[in-house]
């Protein structure tokens, strides 16, 4: 079992857009929660709940971000980046749905795989993709 450190919310994670940051904090808490509650052998019940929370996160959080992207015309200013961003959102949702399908069929995702996926999301999406969006929105709001 790989030891995953608890994630402490820090300035590095801040995108600068309050609404986004607030929701990211909830995700960070969920990841820490998953870390604390999952043992080496994940129980279906806990995985079911964690994955449901992640679905919920995908729904409200991606809506928030994508609404902001539309509002600030991210695609118009930065088409490739916007498209990649949306694609990552869809991939996240698909992965969570796949995890849930697995649970249903009795193929439980391991603690390590789930935490690796979530930490990867944090590192690749929040720390990179979201921060670029945050910087864009902050710059645009100041300009406007």
């Amino acid at each position: 079992m790989i030891g995953h450190e608890l994630i402490v919310w820090n300035d590095e994670l801040v995108t600068g857009v309050d609404k986004i940051d607030e929701q990211h904090r909830i995700l960070v808490n969920s990841i820490n929660d998953a870390n604390a509650r999952l043992s080496a052998n994940s129980s279906a019940e806990i995985l079911e709940q964690i994955s449901r929370d992640l679905l919920s996160y995908a729904l409200y959080h991606f809506e928030t971000e994508e609404e902001l992207m539309q509002e600030f015309n991210y695609a118009g200013s930065n088409a490739d980046e916007s498209e990649a961003h949306l694609r990552q959102h869809r991939e996240f949702s698909s992965k969570v749905v796949a995890v849930r399908d697995g649970i249903k069929a009795g193929n439980l995702i391991s603690r390590e795989e789930l935490l690796t996926f979530l930490n990867g999301w944090l590192i690749n999406h929040i720390l990179k993709t979201d921060k670029r969006l945050g910087a864009f929105i902050v710059a645009k709001s100041h300009a406007g």
Binding site: R25, N29, S30, N32, D33, D53, S56, Y60
Partner: peptide, 10 residues
């Protein structure tokens, strides 16, 4: 508290 935030979000 994170559970509460999650519940609110849900």
């Amino acid at each position: 508290p994170s559970l509460m935030n999650q519940q609110e979000a849900n």
